[in-house]
Design a protein around this nucleic acid. Structure first.
Lengths: 173, 173
DNA sequence: ATCTGGTTTCAATATTTACTGAAAATACAA
DNA sequence: TTGTATTTTCAGTAAATATTGAAACCAGAT
């Protein structure tokens, strides 16, 4: 039964490659997504060199993206006693992954939008012309919606897994 | 009261520029986001030439991105009787904008991920080794979650505005 | 049929973003 | 201290993406 070994390697390679391609759609760079996929499906923590070798990328690239993943909280550095070099392991719990990604996306997509909208809404607050009022109104509507989406996002991402499932079941049922 | 005119132009310019910058965060190209912002805050439909002039971009660029916005459904082409050239106007209703964007994001981010995950889950279905089973299990969990997110997204994006607000109020309250 | 105002396409170019590889820094061990 | 294994940084380069501008195209008016 060594055919399975080969099959697994195949499937995992496929997964890593495809996940990398997906990453670009998600606004995440390909390498970062690939490393994430690799670590999520790794039986144990990996070193920088293992990642480099597996993905055939440079040390600099591996390093930068591992650090980025750590800063997101999707990957942890672990030390092995007696070992000098760093090992990396990914968070595998999907709900946890989701909450991390949701938080990050909110931070990158919603928060700055809200800032812009608030500023523009304030700047047009007092306008009296038809055009001025229409502008203010439109921006205001956008602002309200984004603020709302922001709150929702917070609420959901801070839920415990079980509670979220419960809510979802009600919604989908 | 012509100071307000100036102020409005200022505020709108600001909004367009910033919205464009935001677009890049959202994985939308800058010009497309700028045109969208411009049209959302325009008192009436605009021609390609007006867009070109306002944003100081080439005809080709304006054309491509207007078409892209139309294909998303965020912008409509309108014909004015007796007028030969095309006019463009944006959808202004925020909930409608949201549902369009949600649908598109699902199509670009969730659907392809689901495809990859299903494929990898299937390919590892029968594996018997510890590593094989672990891989299958991990991919499976991701698959289940993405499928779930996909369904949720559909549900919400097809809701009528009022219903969504009602649900949200319950959730936030 | 051809002119005119407008749209569409696309090869060339510019801009942005990602990646490499090697040098510099760090950290531990002898 | 000096040496060695490892991490970190970053200038240069490569790859991907967006933009231009001009030519080809199209449709209605003359």
């Amino acid at each position: 039964m060594n055919a399975e070994r080969e099959q697994l390697k195949q499937a995992r390679g496929e997964f890593v490659a495809q996940w990398g391609a997906l990453g670009t759609q998600w606004g995440i760079n390909r390498t970062m997504a690939q490393i994430h996929a690799l670590l999520m499906t790794s039986p144990g923590p990996m070193t920088t060199d293992e990642v480099m070798e597996e993905l055939e990328i440079s040390r600099g690239n591996a390093h930068t993206n591992l650090k980025e993943l750590v800063s997101w909280g999707l990957v942890r550095m672990v030390v092995r006693k007696g070992e000098r070099r760093d090992y990396f392991e990914a968070e595998k719990e999907v709900w946890t992954i989701f909450t991390i990604v949701a938080r990050e996306r909110k931070r990158r997509e919603l928060d700055p939008a809200l800032l812009v909208l608030s500023h523009c809404a304030d700047a047009s607050e007092e306008m009296t012309s038809v055009e001025g009022k229409a502008f203010h109104d439109q921006v205001r509507q956008l602002q309200d919606f984004v603020a709302f989406a922001s709150k929702m996002s917070d609420r959901i991402a801070t839920m415990k897994h079980g509670l979220a499932v419960q809510l979802a079941t009600k919604l989908l049922g």
